[in-house]
Nucleic acid binder design. Structure first.
Lengths: 220, 220
DNA sequence: TGTATCCGATACGCAACTGTATGGGATACA
DNA sequence: TGTATCCCATACAGTTGCGTATCGGATACA
């Protein structure tokens, strides 16, 4: 799947061209799909020739996985940053009825990686994993990272409000994630002009009502 | 997008080779993806050469869309058949608590096109539509068909039980569909051995609890 | 059964991409 | 500043796929 190129000293120069190749690949993969993009196109877009490519990666697949690993980190960092930024969410509220849930969802989804490029890359990765059993574990591992991260936020936020979920929080998280993913895709499919608003609109229409029903007060 | 080949008399022979080409394409697309499959490979798998292909389709894309239209019909028929088969679902039940919901979901999801090949093809279509604004409308139109069809069942079943949804039934349907889609994909990703059981397991873990919360008695 | 039409096989020219081997300019380090 | 090492550009040979044009066998129909 991702046989790394035989160990070579990772000099600064080397690292720089690797980054540039991955940057170029990222854009091209998003707009045309992995299969449709030639190695030559990647190298050229990055300002190199195929010589540079083969000096750094053994195959397009290896580049793809390296790029995905890098990108996952970026997206996870975004999520964590947004979580930290909103860690005090919910304090000061007391009841279930005060409409805070819309706000919570709003914040969570503005925290989620909200960009079309990422959605496309991520969908491509998923499809690839669906076909290639060897790639599936890595994909699932990434998903699990987001899941636990998000789940903790949901539980913590609920707790701040004196609430807890009636069912396994991880299942709730799955619900939220699946809806968010779907909303993101629908936004692109409908060609919405303003990404940020559109996605949240779709999700906000349903999720607050649903989540509200899945919460209950903590009774000590 | 799908410029049909200049009108030719659709003889029986012609129709037969079109079908065979689409059959072959269906298998190949599912296992390798549209981009990875060459026109030559399709023709060969169908028992023809490229001559036959170009005599019937102007491009791989045109074949793909023709095939999708055919396949959508198949899947819709499956759904409708299953609905008809279970049209009396819920009669005889009276209360919300009697655990009938699990059964409803069970039936709905056994009605949904539950095969891996379709999931792969469908995902591919979605990804293609995500990238190509010209293809998006057709994809969305197909989704809408399933949505309204399912929505009607949900509403009707609820009504049979003297219940109705607290929020727009279409939003509930979106919820169910998104979860179902996701469940299907996870099933494949985890490489479950028995498709039918696995999918339902995943969905059944969450949806009944959620749906139960979204229903209320009809008060005349 | 004869004949007109249809359909798909074959042949051809072309373009794009792949992977490797090699050499020269860039870089690091004394 | 000299030199060893590294990294990427270039050249080469080969493969694969594309689209078209043409021809012969199959099919329909009288």
């Amino acid at each position: 799947m991702g046989e790394t190129i035989s160990e070579v000293p990772a000099t600064a120069r080397r690292q720089r061209t690797r980054e540039r190749l991955m940057d170029a690949a990222h854009k091209l993969f998003a707009s045309q799909g992995v299969h449709a993009v030639s190695i030559e196109a990647i190298a050229e877009a990055a300002g190199y020739t195929r010589g540079a490519f083969y000096s750094n990666f053994a195959s397009k697949n290896e580049l793809f996985f390296a790029m995905m690993r890098r990108e996952i980190e970026v997206q996870l960092d975004r999520l964590r940053a947004a979580i930290a930024r909103n860690s005090d969410l919910g304090t000061g509220r007391a009841t279930l009825e005060s409409g805070f849930l819309a706000e919570v969802i709003q914040e969570i989804f503005s925290a989620l990686p909200d960009d079309r490029t990422w959605t496309l890359i991520h969908s491509e990765f998923e499809l690839l994993a669906l076909r290639d059993p060897a790639a599936a574990p890595e994909f699932l591992a990434n998903e699990a990272l987001f899941r636990t991260e998000l789940s903790e936020v949901l539980v913590a936020t609920a707790a701040t409000l004196g609430l807890r979920f009636r069912i396994d929080p991880l299942l709730v998280t799955d619900l939220v994630l699946a809806q968010g993913k779907q909303a993101m895709r629908e936004m692109i499919l409908r060609g919405a002009e303003d990404p940020a608003i559109a996605t949240h609109d779709i999700v906000l229409k349903t999720m607050p009502a649903v989540l509200q029903q899945l919460l209950e007060p903590i009774e000590p």
